[in-house]
Simulated scan of single mutants.
Amino acid sequence: MTGKRPGPRLPAEQLAIAWQSASLLLDYPDEELAFRLDLIQRLSGQLPFPVGEPLRRTVARLGAIALPLAQREYVECFDSRRRTNLYLTYFAHGDTRRRGVALLRFKQTYLRSGYVLDDTELPDHLCVVLEYAATVDQRLGWRLLLDHRAGLELLRLALADADSPWLGAVEAVTGTLPPLVGDELTAVRRLAAEGPPREEVGLTPYAVPPMPGARR
């Protein structure tokens, strides 16, 4: 994308609520899920309809199924499908050597804000990125999301095709971002047609599984 990038349209407080809520919804469902759903339902009322309504849809769908079923569906959705994984660099680079460089850039961005990840977590996991953007550095978090706008859009489209309960959480994130234009639209069309690259190589210094999995 060329030219100056647009800034956020929502105030900082609403961005923080939207991104943190989406991060909680997209994390692996555990025994605290019911509490998180209640919290997000209440906080979503502070957001404009195009952002709050998708969050409430995901809250309603997850609240309507038993926790063991939610856990099974989560694993099936995010652990076994190339187009519905939560690792942002995977969409652009797949399991190629270039992905290692992209992961390093994420980590360097976090370090600029004094944010140090646990060694067990990859820095491009969408839940990690959203939490960082919501609670640590909105400006740099915004840039990371825009850098991977095409991947986010492919994830949204793939979740829609699968009628996934988690679709609304991703729709809320993309709802905080500018509309797709120019090179971004081209990138989305290419990703939709081809999918992530398939070449598999070592990704030192990160140990990356062949198929992206859930943060747990």
Rank of each mutant, 00 (worst) to 15 (best):
L39P: 11
F78A: 01
A60Q: 13
L69Y: 08
P48W: 00
T58A: 04
D38A: 15
E31W: 07
A66F: 07
R72A: 01
C77W: 06
S80V: 14
I65S: 14
L69C: 07
A70L: 04
Y90T: 05
P54W: 02
A64C: 11
S80M: 11
R36Q: 12
Q41C: 11
T84Y: 09
L43T: 06
R36H: 14
Q46L: 14
Y87E: 10
T89W: 12
E53F: 00
A60S: 15
L55A: 05
G52L: 00
R57D: 11
I65T: 15
S80H: 12
F91H: 12
A64Q: 13
F35H: 08
R83F: 06
L86K: 02
R82P: 14
F78Q: 01
R61I: 13
R83H: 04
L86R: 00
R82Y: 09
E73S: 10
L39D: 03
A66N: 06
Q41D: 15
R81S: 13
D38M: 09
A70W: 00
G63T: 06
E53C: 09
Y74M: 04
P48V: 06
G45W: 09
R57F: 05
A70M: 04
Q41P: 05
S44Q: 02
R57Y: 02
F78K: 00
L67H: 01
C77D: 08
P50D: 06
L39M: 14
G63Y: 02
E32H: 08
Q46I: 07
E31Y: 10
V75T: 10
R61M: 10
R81A: 12
T58P: 02
Y90I: 05
L69A: 12
S44R: 01
T58S: 05
L88F: 03
E32R: 11
T89P: 14
L69D: 10
R61Q: 15
F91L: 11
R61T: 12
G63M: 03
V75E: 07
P48C: 12
I65E: 14
F78R: 00
L69G: 03
R83P: 03
D79M: 08
V59L: 07
L43R: 02
A64P: 10
L62A: 07
I65L: 10
E31M: 12
R56F: 11
A66Q: 12
I40S: 05
R42W: 10
G52Q: 00
R36I: 02
E73D: 14
R42H: 15
L88E: 03
A64L: 08
R57V: 11
G45C: 11
G63A: 06
E73N: 15
S80F: 12
I65N: 04
Q71I: 01
L67M: 01
E73Q: 13
A92G: 09
L88G: 03
I40W: 02
A60L: 10
P50T: 04
F35G: 06
R57E: 15
N85R: 01
T84G: 13
R42P: 12
S80P: 03
G45N: 12
I65W: 05
R36M: 10
A70P: 12
L39F: 07
L55Y: 02
G63Q: 04
